[in-house]
Amino acid sequence: MSLYRTELRRLGKRRFTRWAALLGLLVLLAVVVGGFFTNEKLDAAALAKAERAAEQQWQQDVRNSEQFRAECEKAKNGGTAERGQFPEDCAVIAPPPREAIEAEWFLPSTFNFRENFGFTLLPLAAILALVGFIVGASFVGAEWNTGGMMNLLLWRPKRLTVLLTKLAALLTGLLAVALPATALWFGSFWLVATLRGTTEKMTSGAWQSFALTGLRGLVLALVTATIGFALASLGRHTAMALGGAIAVMVVGQFGLGILLEMAGARFAEAWLLPTYALAFMQKKVTLENWDACQATYFGECKPETLDITWQQSSVLLAVGLTVILGAALWAMRRRDIS
């Protein structure tokens, strides 16, 4: 227990931990502030203004179509119409019906909590995961690099206990930041919706869905922090984790993506990790293959689809986590420390 408390202290004392956490929280704050200033509350005046804008737009369309028809008729009568410039019959040129121009199009952006909040949980999870990854990698990587791990093992010769206690302290520290940050995120956007949008139609089911998405975001952050920690421990340097992540992104994702595209592979995105992260957060991602036509009863051509579910993503995350953490533990137990 003393080792666990000491590692928590060590984590908190590290400048990099503090700066990374602060930077992550500032980015989140910027998203909230941006959301606040780019949305407006819809009142009667805003609706009336939108109605007026829609009316003006329709009248402009009427003027444009009348002018175009006049030009058409003049060209037809004068025999100067170029082929394809006008329709065969100028009478078909008509303005859109009034109801086709909807006032909704001219409404300012507003934050509908029920419809929009779910999407904001994606950047929250991404930033928490990023902070978790680099702090996790740095926490153990710097220990290896500076000889701190060796010093610690001279005091506590149980290697696996030391490594797992460090990991436990890291995850506790991450939760200590991520949980309040997530709670504040919910609260901030509720405030944004209250002041700059609407909180209507929030049922218990909607709340439950958001809570579960938030929970999956926390799990994703914890998993990426553990992977960063394990990679840095495996390579005994922070750069191992950061370099590994960059290599996976550049080679494994962009490179693989281009290769699959060139090879004309079906559902190329199914091979890319971000797809699974997105599916984990959104519960499902549907990939579409536009090269295949699946005819409907009405003769319509629909693309072939593939669903990636959050359960499939969970399996992938669990396997990846087990393999990388297992390798780090094995190396910790077996490899000499020199």
Binding site: L3, R5, W155
Partner: peptide, 12 residues
């Protein structure tokens, strides 16, 4: 002092 304090903490 921090360095020694963390070691002392780990070693009780």
């Amino acid at each position: 002092r921090d360095t020694l304090s963390l070691l002392a903490g780990a070693g009780e």
